[in-house]
């Protein structure tokens, strides 16, 4: 494996533990009644990085981009919105698998980001967010002078 990084693995583990304990006393002991999409970790996100940016992909199909709300406070990004129910007036359901309702998800970024350079694009049900890393974070190449 090429990309194995101990610190990254530790960070993933920490996030998973956070996630598991988030619902203690609420989810673990009582089976949730009507677990809507706001109960769990919805929407699902992927977080990537390169030298200049953090990239977040969130799975939010069927939402009007106007109903999506993004907030950035220091290193924490909050994504909230509402997924409207399918309009159904007295019709017969055959399958009802798609959830609906309000949701909110907070994503903790590994470091602070440059709040002035945030780009969010909604494409085919996926929200693509690009957050620029602050200038000081970027690795700088220092050339060595030869005498």
């Amino acid at each position: 494996m090429t990309g194995w990084d101990l610190f990254q693995e530790m960070d993933m583990l920490r996030r998973e533990i956070d996630q598991a304990f988030r619902g203690v006393g609420r989810h673990s002991f009582y089976p949730s009644f009507l677990p809507g999409i706001s109960a769990g970790d919805y929407p699902r996100v992927n977080l990537n990085e390169d030298e200049n940016n953090y990239y977040i992909e969130a799975l939010v199909p069927g939402i009007d981009p106007k109903d999506l709300d993004l907030n950035l406070l220091q290193g924490t990004l909050t994504l909230s919105g509402e997924r409207k129910a399918s309009e159904n007036n007295g019709q017969t359901w055959h399958r009802h698998e798609r959830g609906n309702g309000k949701f909110m998800r907070t994503i903790e970024l590994p470091d602070s980001v440059d709040g002035s350079k945030v780009d969010a694009e909604y494409r085919n049900g996926i929200l693509l967010i690009t957050l620029a890393k602050p200038q000081s974070e970027k690795p700088k190449r220092i050339s060595v002078r030869a005498n």
Binding site: L59, V60, G62, S86, Q91, T92, W93, H94, R98, N124
Partner: peptide, 22 residues
């Protein structure tokens, strides 16, 4: 994909969540 299927007198409607598909 997760789907909703419902039926009215006139037609059958199927909605499927397929994020990332164009």
């Amino acid at each position: 994909p997760a789907v909703d299927i419902f039926e009215s007198d006139e037609n059958l409607t199927l909605m499927a969540d397929m994020p990332g598909v164009d």
